[in-house]
Amino acid sequence: MDEQDMPQRLVDAVIADFPDHAPGTRPAHTIGLGVTGYFRGSPIARDYCIAEHFQGHNVPVTVRFSNSSGSPVQHDGWSDARGMATRFHLQDDQATDLIAMTLREFFSPTPEDFLEFSKEARPRPVKPDPWWRKILDMLQLKPPNPDPYPGQNESGAPGSLDYANHHRSAQLAALDAAMLGAPVSYARATYNAVHTFIITAPDKTKRYVRFFWQPVAGVEVTDPTAPPVDDYLQGELRERLRDWPAEFLLLMAVGEGGDPLLDPTQAWPLHRSRVVMGMLKLIEIPADQETFCEKMSYNPGRMTRGLEMSDDPVLAARAQAYEVSRKMRGGSPCPFSKG
């Protein structure tokens, strides 16, 4: 098979995972909300990285929060990953993006594996396990499969789990996904950029790092025993921003020898050096969501001087696939660029 086809095949694979996907929309993370504000690098961020947004002045940002599904039907209350894509608007119409999500790791270490995984993870019809199977599970000290949400007829979860049972690389993501829950607010979840980037310090020291956003309001999920609400996240954020900015701390873990630097399926141990790189303040939700959200296309490979992609093969593939997807749906790389 042709290497060149890979980005397109990745996009097609994601689209195939959501049978009701509407052409012209994002293949995944279809439902989202654009927010603007600014990011300010911490006083020590510049000692680690020469990139413009870490120099300590305010940098305007556009953030898009999203649910991970590629389906046009909104289910805010379902346990699922959420996305937070951040565009840092730099000088001279330049920009850099940071794409993050609530999972700590990916399901696949390579694009080839991802194709296989997404095939397995296609939605299958789901219904509650019969009562006797639940009892059998319980007798094995195995938690019974949770019942589908009311109105849910299909799910990708059984396929993902199956895949993970046969592919160890997918196990951490599968377990993480099973325990995610639904956030009470887009501003109350931790978002991980998952991939490793290489930053350059003023003295040319290079570091392998991973970024994550931590909400200053704290992390909270909805009550899993209460019936899920389909539409509350966008309203909650509008309401919240009327009173206060939503703040996120940008933290950076520094990778060490022996860490899975290039493997996005493996989260790093929690006790890596944790550097405070800056604070994000989200201030308003632009009325023109078409420009600031729907038409904007983020890309995990949009780098800037001092910030490079590592050789993580999934990162490289995603960067290309996002570009394919942008062209397919006529998105613009940057709302301020003339292109």
Partner: peptide, 9 residues
Amino acid sequence: GANFRETSW
């Protein structure tokens, strides 16, 4: 040492 190119210093 058990060094790695990416992280050695």
